[in-house]
Amino acid sequence: MAGLVNNAGVGTPWPMELCPLDEFRWHLEVNVTGQLAVTQACLPLLKHARGRIVNVGSEGGRITLPFMGAVTASKHALVAVTGALRRPSSRPSPG
């Protein structure tokens, strides 16, 4: 059995009205895009081995805490990406 555990995560507290857009983008890049990139890179081997993927999230995927809007937005997005990966694809695998 093969597996991938995505455990990336960053979080800096900001009130949303003051959060610099570069900071917000950084949260999305690490917490969502980075995990998807690693998953896509490993997916051919995982499919061949009939392996599993575990995306480690946080309570931020369920609730929004004060000053943690950028973190929780990214963790909510990770929940959505994980759900989408769980669904079988109707497209053939490339290559």
Rank of each mutant, 00 (worst) to 15 (best):
A2V: 02
A2L: 03
A2H: 11
A2Y: 07
G3I: 00
L4R: 04
N6R: 02
N6A: 00
N6Q: 12
N6W: 00
A8Y: 12
V10T: 08
G11C: 06
G11F: 00
G11N: 03
T12Y: 11
P13V: 00
M16V: 05
M16N: 14
E17M: 02
C19Q: 11
P20Q: 10
P20K: 03
L21W: 08
L21I: 05
L21R: 10
D22M: 03
E23L: 01
F24T: 07
F24N: 09
R25V: 07
W26P: 12
H27P: 10
L28H: 12
L28Y: 14
E29V: 01
E29Q: 03
E29M: 01
E29K: 04
V30R: 03
V30P: 15
V30I: 07
N31A: 00
V32I: 06
V32T: 11
T33C: 03
T33H: 11
Q35P: 06
L36T: 05
L36R: 01
L36I: 02
A37P: 09
V38C: 13
V38A: 15
V38W: 08
T39G: 14
T39D: 15
T39L: 06
Q40D: 13
Q40L: 00
Q40F: 02
Q40G: 06
Q40M: 03
A41T: 04
C42G: 11
C42R: 00
C42L: 06
L43T: 06
L43S: 11
P44T: 01
P44G: 01
P44Y: 03
L46N: 13
K47Y: 09
K47R: 13
K47D: 15
A49Q: 13
A49I: 01
A49M: 11
G51W: 02
R52P: 08
I53P: 15
I53Y: 12
I53H: 15
V54F: 04
V54W: 01
N55G: 07
N55F: 00
N55V: 00
S58G: 05
E59W: 04
G60E: 12
G61F: 00
I63C: 09
L65T: 13
P66M: 08
F67R: 10
G69Y: 10
G69W: 10
A70R: 07
V71N: 15
V71F: 10
T72K: 09
T72I: 03
A73Y: 01
A73L: 03
A73N: 08
S74A: 09
K75N: 13
H76M: 07
A77M: 07
L78M: 14
L78I: 01
L78K: 11
V79L: 12
V79C: 12
A80G: 13
A80M: 14
V81N: 14
T82Q: 15
T82F: 11
T82A: 10
A84E: 15
A84N: 07
L85C: 06
L85E: 15
L85W: 12
L85A: 12
R86K: 01
R86P: 13
R86C: 06
P88L: 09
S89H: 00
R91H: 15
R91T: 07
R91I: 02
G95Y: 05
G95A: 09
